[in-house]
Amino acid sequence: MTAIERFDNLGEARDSRIVSATHPIIEKKSKRTAERFLLGLALPLLLGIGWELAVRAGWAEGRLMPPPSRIFLTLYSLAVTGELWIHIGATLARVGAGFALGVIAGTLVGALAGASRLSREILDPSLQGLRSVPSIAWVPLFILWLGIFEESKIALIAVGCFFPIYLGVLAAIQSVDRKTVEVGRVFRLTTPQLVRRILLPAILPAYVVALRQGLGLGWMFVVAAEFMGASEGLGYLLIDGQQLGKPDQIIAAIVTFAILGKITDGLIASSSAPFLTWQDAYAPKH
């Protein structure tokens, strides 16, 4: 063994810990997840308890900003009567349908614009123009075209989801490294193979981000959609709470939005995580 080889192997001996120490790392990770969950919970919990105490001690008056106990009671009674589930179901169905349509259209159009320059030069300017229209501006038109029931609401949500997904897919395709694609050419991949083995995995991280942004906008637009006249849905609970002067009901609906938004976002993040373990992500330790 020459001096150079020894030098080289020294580095390997140091790095081989990566291979052998997998299990402790996994255990540590799940502990870290629990810790992170509790840390994230600390701030809202602290604020809630503080407000509760302030109202009980009489330092603040809880009429317009009811204390957590009243909000929970409201949520509880809505849940017991079954009303809450109907509203959640209606809102979830709208977001789900709108998001699905937005994802399908955004992905297809984004892929088309990313794949061919001609179609990009035809499509992109118009879509960028449409994108700068505030999506709420479509509401009157959608109501005229589609009526005041579900169709117009779903269309509005789909439009909201479409743009971030379209942009995300297009940008992701355009930023695929030419050098990586060349590796595919060297190994004589056919076009479908190139798409499956190089392009799809290369754009997946950006695509997941685009999906999460799209879903975030979907939740935003479902409220706008339900404001324009709905008899059920969390947006309806908001309007109803305002008209009948029930701030606890408004906040209960807001809290439900927050929980549902976090859960659905977490579903996308966690279902894509197994495919993205390869990422060389920046992760601060403290």
Binding site: K179, T180, E182, V183, I198, P201, A202, L204, W278, Q279
Partner: peptide, 11 residues
């Protein structure tokens, strides 16, 4: 062919 960069597929 081997290029100047490894060009490994990170995934």
């Amino acid at each position: 062919i081997i290029f100047q960069e490894p060009r490994l597929l990170p995934w």
